[in-house]
Design a protein around this nucleic acid. Sequence first.
DNA 1: TATGAATGAGCATTCATTCAT
DNA 2: CATGAATGAATGCTCATTCAT
Lengths: 197, 197, 197, 197
Amino acid sequence: MSNQRDQQKQETRARLIEAGAKVFAERGLEGTRIGDIAKEAGVAMGTLYTHFPDKEALFDEVMRAGKALIIDGIKATYELDVEHATRDLLVMEGVVAFAETYGSLFRLMLARGGGEDPIQREVIDAVTELRVKEFEEGRVVGWVRPGQNLKAVARCEVGAVFHLLDWWLDDPARMDREELIGTLSNFRRFGLEGREP
Amino acid sequence: MSNQRDQQKQETRARLIEAGAKVFAERGLEGTRIGDIAKEAGVAMGTLYTHFPDKEALFDEVMRAGKALIIDGIKATYELDVEHATRDLLVMEGVVAFAETYGSLFRLMLARGGGEDPIQREVIDAVTELRVKEFEEGRVVGWVRPGQNLKAVARCEVGAVFHLLDWWLDDPARMDREELIGTLSNFRRFGLEGREP
Amino acid sequence: MSNQRDQQKQETRARLIEAGAKVFAERGLEGTRIGDIAKEAGVAMGTLYTHFPDKEALFDEVMRAGKALIIDGIKATYELDVEHATRDLLVMEGVVAFAETYGSLFRLMLARGGGEDPIQREVIDAVTELRVKEFEEGRVVGWVRPGQNLKAVARCEVGAVFHLLDWWLDDPARMDREELIGTLSNFRRFGLEGREP
Amino acid sequence: MSNQRDQQKQETRARLIEAGAKVFAERGLEGTRIGDIAKEAGVAMGTLYTHFPDKEALFDEVMRAGKALIIDGIKATYELDVEHATRDLLVMEGVVAFAETYGSLFRLMLARGGGEDPIQREVIDAVTELRVKEFEEGRVVGWVRPGQNLKAVARCEVGAVFHLLDWWLDDPARMDREELIGTLSNFRRFGLEGREP
DNA sequence: TATGAATGAGCATTCATTCAT
DNA sequence: CATGAATGAATGCTCATTCAT
């Protein structure tokens, strides 16, 4: 079949998603102009509508792609057979790397998470869910302090981590990566006052 | 002088700010229609422009009013002469009460904090600053674990608290208030793993 | 009767007309904001409507006042018992003085004469009419070249004089007053090529 | 390439300029409603904005087109190798023809010349400049009376001609074309009193 | 499939005018 | 009579979406 043509089409689609990620991240769903995405992707405005029914559909696609990226990154860390504290650092490192690489997209999807669009909530919900599972294992093994509502605690952790990163991204000179990761790790493990058991 | 007139004017202005708080909170700056605010306030669209130069000016005013409300609430708690752990609970109770009362405005200003508008960052920055001061005292007194970057830790705390509340507001049946406040307090004090010193 | 109050009222009215003259002259009928006139006159916007039914009525009043000023000035010159060429110079001097004093009002009423408003045409028609009468006398006495349609010629003269002044007002350094008046006088008497009879 | 498409676009653009010329001429820059131009051109309002950034840009374009028409017309007459008086008549005939054909556009651009917009001044300045050059040649050849400031005199001529035409257009029954042209020519050559040298 | 000119509903803002005080 | 807050129709401009080429 017209494999050549099909490949072209997929490439155009990919370019649109990438362009969308960039522009949506910078200006949000409402602030983004369809024309800016088209220009960024180097195609005509009409082309966008041969790939997606409307603006929001492209937005969802961008979110979906971002979600996959994040979730896969975290899951990959879970596969490793290392002890709890090490894995914890690896997860934090992965999140910091994602924030550094994707900057404003990270903000759009996670830090100012849960915008009006349901898909945005979906992303942060999925991340939280992963953390809950991790914590459940931790409860079994014993490194989780007993008597906690894990879903709620996972929300706290997610909020703490993403908000610190949001702040740090504004001016990365605020802390070096090592201190950043240390702070993230320590706060989520021991809070402000806690001591290692 | 025209005291009657002046009072009327201030009342209209107040109605506009209140209406703005409601509609902006529900739909954000860009998503809000001037006409909806006017309808909510029960005045003509033009009236809005006799009180504020444009949409954004009203938005700023709403943010400023909200900021005052939040900051004053927290500060009031600080005045009390109680011991650290008690005050901590009181602060959390205050924040929960604010979130319950103002719902979507709380989200707009704090939970999804730091939208594009500088004024939004200002609010969450101010709250964080207040926390940093509290922590500095705690360091002196000794209830803060040594060796922490307090500014960074304050960001974590703020992120944790506001994000849990954001999630809770979606469905308050998730936890009763007591458990909510307990979770907030414990997480920010001891994290996921820490023990009381 | 309340003579005091009546006097006050007339003064307010006069202030409004003067303010109107200034603002209308600078910005035209459509470009003028009622509020600017009120501010210039130092009264509230509503006050304007106790003196004039609407914006256009004030505009007409301003035009009417300006018209009287111009026509009276020209007529005064006609009263003088001097010979034709002298009077001619005096008329030109009067017009130049008016243009210098009233600047943009002169433009509004004469130089860019005959805007959309009928009252504007009225002013320039009146001036032309005066000139026609003068020329008719000149025809009798003999200083007008025979065989001319005086109404048409008066239009030419008015156009020539007012347009040169319009140009001159842009940058009065272009010519000194003497040269200006000389040019006006000579052109309207002898055109570009004519010689003194 | 998309020659068909491109041609369509140019046609739409031309229709907008033509419609703009008509409506602007009738109602001026401020008095014109964008919607009226669109309706006149038979396109949607939005279409106007795919061709011009805003109302004023279309206005400028209309002025520019009109300016070219006028200047080219006058210049064409200058190319002819005829004697001075003949050419003079031809120029007047050209101007009258333009005024007859374009009516209100002629008024907007020339007769009430030099509206607020710089582009309007530009048109009348260009015409004047052309006349100055003509006069400079006339001075060399000898048909210009010596001792005149040619720039100033050109302003007088332009004012005289355009104002008479403005008046005549109100009611062309006032004079037949021959008398009109004769008056224009005679006045600008000999003024009210001058004699042929 | 890609294009981009055309569309037109939608929106923020302006401003002449009114009217309760 | 003077005031100026309130009014709301009117307007310029935007932008997601369509569709002829």
